[in-house]
Amino acid sequence: MTLGVPGPTDMNSKSNQTYEVAAKERTGLADVLRRFFDSDLWFSFRHSPVAIISMAVSILIVFSAIFAHWIAPTNPFDLAQIDLLDSEIPPVWLPDGDSRFLLGTDDQGRDIFSTILYGSRVSLLVGFASVVFAMAIGIPLGLISGYYGGYVDAVIMRIADVQLSFPAILIAFLIDGVARGVLPRAVHDEMALYVLVFAIGISGWVQYARTVRGSTMVEKNKEYVQAARVIGIRRGTILVRHILPNVLGPVLVIATIHLALAIITEATLSFLGVGVPVTSPSLGTLIRVGYDFLFSGVWWITIMPGVALIILVLAINMVGDWLRDALNPKLR
């Protein structure tokens, strides 16, 4: 937003003008879009084939996961649609393949392509929710820590230091283990998704807090913040309306990479049997279920969801890599 500084003579007309500009910018979606397409970020995106492809793949996976109901050839959880006689059919390109089952079937005759679509929905859901949860804890703590400094800062950052010296996955394991102890088994299966989101989210907040704290400490001494303080805006408002938007750039990069990591963590926990239960399997659960059949030569039950997971994580990581370089002023 361009705030015109009112000159001494034409104060009224000038400020009217700025109001108009402001109103226009706030209302016009077209303006927002135009500004986005004019931005350096969009320029960098258009000129990076890797970014375009990986973004396209990510979006494709997200959409096919969301609309799994319509896209999947069968509903793998509807018992009427599966037939045990169809079990363990290899993918179409192998000699015994069946054209109805693109990636083959599992031990119960379910179409693996369909289970992967439904599974990636669960994986993405847990991944996104964990990232949002970690941000919801990390960003406010980072803002407070960076803005207030002193004692508050020391306490928050010491906790962050201690947590950072333990690998995230270990913390997720422990939280899950404790949840198993606290909740009765039946309730735990029902709550498994929430427990996972909590465990993965808690184990990831430190990155956000540290980054936001760092940028906040830089931003809080800038003139616009001082100006806001001078005209008597409350501290909470300054933090949320003025500082927060300016520290979100690096957060976006971390969030993208954290999303990939959260999906991996979820898959790992589910693979080890402490994550999503088999009733609504994620990619990790599918891999775990298929793992039992690996040694009998029926490799596709476990490898197909594995490949799907790798493609998903790789695509997100590549978007993250590009974003980090695009937002890094040093590399421009």
């Binding site: 990939a260 991996i264 898959a267 790992t268 693979f271 080890l272 891999i287 793992y291 690996l294 490799w299 476990t302 490898i303 594995g306 997971l309 790798i310 994580v313 790789l314 990581n317 590549m318 890599d321």
Partner: peptide, 18 residues
């Protein structure tokens, strides 16, 4: 190396076993 970061440890194990 980007592939290495993107493949979860347990999948690397499974692929090696296979």
């Amino acid at each position: 190396s980007l592939l290495g970061v993107s493949i979860p440890t347990f999948l690397i194990g499974i692929i090696l076993i296979l």
